[in-house]
Each structure stands twice: as structure tokens, then as C-alpha cells.
Amino acid sequence: MVDNSVSEFFRQKNIIFFKTLDSTQSYALELTSKSKPIDKTAILTYNQSAGKGQLGAKWQTQADKNLCMSIIGYPVKLKVGEQFLLSMTAALAVMRFLLQYTQKKIQIKWPNDILLDNKKICGILINNSLQGMYITSSVTGMGVNINQTAFEDGLPNASSLAIAEGKEFALDELSAELYQCYEYYYQWLNTGMHELLRSEYHANLFGIGAINRFEKKDESVFSAKVKGVDIDGRLMLSIGNRIEKFDIREIKLLL
């Protein structure tokens, strides 16, 4: 249940809360395909039964422990070639949100995972609709681990705010905060503050300026210095005396 003080905020901001939902992202996409929800309409649940990860991958969460929010947006004149700014917007929003509740180290792992003390605490999923060369609508799904303290064996690198701080958090208040953090950077995106988004993303990028290990598709491992991320979101690495750019299909950053 959403308490009264927060429910007014939710109503004002068009945040639609569900006690349980299969997937906030699927719901938001469905809504967008059938109608035109107003800008920044959000779908929220703490009990996502069939969370959506990358193309059908499942995002596992325990009931009523975590926060799953999908926000519908209509970016202003955002070109297809600038789409990685949406990833930056979401990653920075989650970072800013987490920093309200913990002093621990929060970083962005390329391209858009959020790490708390080097462990994954958030998953971000973005679906866009394109028309010609512009992104006409976008749904940003953020799943943040809040009160879950035990993870499956397959997830040794997962964390949550409760693990970091040793206490439980009120999900309603946190939802309102996450939404406001998203609004903050979404406004940057829509008012052309793209360079600022980029520099803030880089300032918080895991491994920036340092030698890191990467795994190639053929499972070979190499080390290289992280120089940054280009406009397409490709990771720029300094190899020898050259800068090479990599797509996520080509390499994986090893923690």
C-alpha cells in the first residue's frame, strides 16, 4: 500500500502504482502503444512477478522488497544517433537517488549498470520508438534492489540498499525520490544540456582513467585503459598508442 502523503505526490505526477504487476516495462510499453500517456507517466510496483530484462531475460526480485519503475517519456528532438543520452540520463538518476541513502561508493558500470561497492544494485532497460531519425517515445525501466538481503546463488555480485546500510527503507518515499531524480536529469536531456550529462556520466564511470580487464567474445582477456564513452555509447580504450572503440557485443568489462 502506498501511504497517504506519498499518494498525493503519485497522483500529481501520474505515477501509477500496482500492488503486483508482471512487468512495469511491459505495462508501460503496452500503454504507450495503445494511447498517448502524458510525458513522465510512471508505472510502479514493489512486486514484479515476471520482470523484464534484456530481450526476455528475467529480472528476479523478491515480493515487496524492491522498486520497479518504468517512466514513459517523449524526448525533445532527440536524434537516433544521440540515443545513448537516454542511458546516461537513467544511470545518473539512479546514482543520484542512491546517494541520498548511502555514503558507499556508487558508480556506473558501462554501459548502464549501477554498482554499489562494486556490486550490481540496479538494472536499467530502455525501449525506444523511432520515427525516421528521431526517437519519438522512450520507456525507461529501472529496477533497484532496496530491501532484499538474500540473492540467489547465481548472483554473487548483487547488492541492495538494505545490505549496504543494515536497515530497511520505506519504498513509497524512495519511489518518490527516484522519480524526482529522473525528472532532474530528464530535464537536462530535454533542454539540450547534453554535454553536462556526458561529463557527469564520465565523472562517475567505473574504471575511468584506469587500467581494467576486458573479456572478448572469444573469451580471451586483455587489459586496457578506459578513456571514456563515445556518442554512440561505445567504450573507448587506450591500446598501445591508439584509441579503440568497442561495442558491448565485442567486449565485457570484468569486475
Binding site: 545513448f84 520508438s129 526517437i135
Partner: peptide, 9 residues
């Protein structure tokens, strides 16, 4: 592209 899923019309 880079974990962004773009529906093409």
C-alpha cells in the same frame, strides 16, 4: 544498440 532497444516502424 548499446542495450537500448529500438522499435523500428
Amino acid at each position: 544498440a548499446m542495450k537500448l532497444f529500438n522499435e523500428i516502424e
